[in-house]
Amino acid sequence: MNPEQILSSFREALGEKVLEDRTIERSVGVLKSKPVYDIWLVVGRDDFHDVVAHLCAKFDPHLSVISGEEIGNDVALNYHFSTGWGEHYGEATFTIRTLVPIDDRRLPSICDLLPGAQTSEREKREFFGLEIEGIPDDRNIFLPEGSTLHPWSKEDDGGTSKELKRLVKWEARDE
């Protein structure tokens, strides 16, 4: 399925919920040049779950990872999916971006649609201090248990910048 067909399926099913879409064509290959596609979508937080539901129902996606960054007053989260795996040249990356306001860091979980999203959701939860509604497991994953740092958050890093000291003293070193 080519990117235009994928995008028109989204426009048809979700209409205005897709705020922005673009397709980037890249050419790969040395002996023979062929195109591959990166699809980028921007959706609102309230419609985000519906958009992923459509993706999961129609396109059997693979979720690679969720990336994120605080830009201005929002946490911008990019869900890096890909669709069309299993065929030679069949796959396109499919990134869904959604913005979460920094003073209301709530987002629906997509684990009900794609259980494999849990690791990445837990990681974003602790890195940005998000509240992921409906996540099956909301303990810290990569940070130590009980850690309240939010290292990727610029607004509220939970004291991460104070933790950057390089060395500690071993209490019995001089004995």
Partner: peptide, 16 residues
């Protein structure tokens, strides 16, 4: 590995 929130430092800062 420097300037990280989760790295304490080289080994000799912890044990001889």
């Amino acid at each position: 590995f420097y300037e990280s929130y989760n790295v304490v430092g080289p080994v000799d800062e912890v044990i001889p």
